[in-house]
Computed example of a mutant assay.
Amino acid sequence: MKKDLGIHLAIFVLLMVSLPGVASPQQIEKKDCMFLSSLHYTASGMGYWYDKSNGGLEAVTGIPYSELSCKNCHVSSCDDCHKTEADGKATYSTKFARDQAMCLKCHAREASMMKIDKLENHEDVHVLAGMQCMDCHTGRDVHGNGTVYASMKQVGALTPKCEGCHEKIAQTTSHTVHAEKLDCNACHVRQVVSCTNCHFETLVKTGKRVAVPVSGWVFLMNSNGKATSANMQTFVAQGNNTFLMFAPQFSHSVMKCGRTCEECHATEVVAEAKSGKVRLLWLDSSGVQHARGVIPVPSGAKYELVFQNHQDGKWSVIENPAEPPIHFAGYGTPLSGAQLEKLARVERGK
C-alpha cells in the first residue's frame, strides 16, 4: 500500500511540473515573478554606476563588474528577509521582514547615518516619531513591480515622496521661492555620510570594503529637473589611481525645519565653487580635515582632495596623486552656472 502511494505521489508531482502554466522553481521567469526584476534581486544599481560605458569606476580599474564580489550583494530569495523561526521550526514572517533591523543589515550607509545622528543628538525627525523603513517604503519598492530598473535613482524605481504624507506645505518665503526649483531634500536633509578612499585593491583581494567615513556635509546637484541633496565618494584603485563620484542621495537625516538662507547662499564654499576649485579634504598639522555644510557641485569645478593608500591595516597619504576622473552617477547632473550665480547672492527670508 505504501509503495503504491509513493508511486501515485511521484506521478502526481511529474504531472504538476509538466502541466502548462505550472513551473518548477528552476523554471520561474521574470514574467511570472516580479521579485526577479526587483533591484533587491538584480542588484543592478552598483553594476550600472560602475560600468565604464557609463563613465564609471571600471574605466580606472579595468576589471569587469562580473568579476567583483559586489555582484553577490543581493537578495537571492524570499528566505533572506522572511525566513525566521517559531517554536523551533522554520517559518515565514511578514512582520520579521518589515522590521527595520532587517533593512539595516544590508543598508549599512543608512545604519551609519542614523548612528551618527543619534550620537550628535539630532536624530532624523521620522526616527524621533517612531517611524521605520516600511512606514514610507512599500512592498513594491522591495519586491519590484515587474519593471527592470538600472538604479534606485531612476525615476519610478522607488515610491516614497515627501508630498505623499505632507500634503499641505506651509507657504513660507523659502517654499514659495524654491517651489519648482528645489527638491525637499535640498533643504531638509541635514547631512550625508560619505565613503572616502574606498580601497579597491583590498576589495578585490579580500572581498572586504575599507574606507574613511566623513559626515557633517551635504552636496547639491540636479536630479529629475530639480536641485537635490547628493553625496560624494572617492576611490583608490591599483597603482594609486584615483576616482571621484557624485550622485543624488536622500539621506535619512531629515530636519523638520529647513536650512536658513545663510546656510546655502553666499557662503565661503560657494565662493570657492565660483572660482572653479572647491576644497573638500585637506591636510593640516592635526591630520585630514574636511569641508562642512552645504557644498554645491557645479559643472567644470576641480576639487581638492586627500587620497590615502591602505596597507597592513593602516592608512598612508598618497603624495601628489593624479587628478581623478569625475563621474556624475545615479542620473545626477552638476549645477549650472546660473544656479551657482543664484547661490552666490545674499538672500534673506524665512
Rank of each mutant, 00 (worst) to 15 (best):
A179E: 15
M131W: 00
K205R: 08
A179Q: 12
K168L: 14
T138A: 01
E163C: 07
G207I: 06
T173A: 09
V177D: 10
A150C: 06
P160F: 01
K153I: 06
V142I: 14
S151V: 13
T202H: 02
E180G: 11
S215N: 11
H143M: 15
N145Q: 08
A157F: 03
S151F: 03
A111T: 02
I169W: 12
I169G: 03
H143Q: 14
C136K: 01
K115Y: 12
H122R: 09
L119V: 13
N197T: 01
D124S: 14
S174I: 12
D141L: 00
A111W: 03
T196C: 11
S215W: 09
E123W: 02
H126E: 08
R140V: 12
K153H: 14
S151N: 12
T173G: 09
C184D: 14
S174T: 09
W217T: 11
T173H: 11
K181M: 08
A211M: 11
I169K: 15
T147A: 10
H143S: 15
P160R: 04
K181H: 12
M113C: 09
E201S: 15
L128Y: 02
V214Q: 10
A186T: 02
C165F: 13
F200Y: 15
H178R: 08
A108I: 13
V212H: 05
T147S: 14
C187P: 00
E201N: 08
E163D: 07
L203V: 06
E110H: 10
A170Q: 10
R209Q: 13
Q132N: 12
T138S: 06
N145Y: 04
R209F: 13
C133F: 08
K115T: 13
S194Y: 02
S174H: 13
K208I: 07
N185P: 02
C133I: 04
D183P: 04
G164I: 07
M134G: 03
V214N: 00
A108Y: 05
L158K: 06
C106F: 06
G146N: 01
R109P: 03
D141K: 01
G216F: 05
Q191A: 10
H126K: 05
C198M: 14
S215E: 07
R190M: 04
W217S: 11
E167F: 12
K205E: 15
M113S: 14
R140N: 07
A179R: 15
R190H: 09
M134F: 14
M113W: 00
E163Q: 07
V127F: 04
G130H: 03
D117F: 02
M114T: 09
M114F: 02
T138P: 04
R190V: 07
M113A: 15
S215D: 13
E167L: 14
T159S: 05
V192L: 02
F200C: 06
G216P: 07
V155G: 05
H166N: 11
D135I: 01
V192S: 00
G216Y: 04
M114L: 15
A179F: 15
E123Q: 13
A211H: 00
S215Y: 08
D124L: 01
N197D: 13
H199W: 06
D141W: 04
Q132I: 13
T138G: 00
A129Q: 14
V193R: 03
G164S: 05
C162A: 13
A129P: 05
H137E: 05
D124G: 03
V192G: 02
L128K: 15
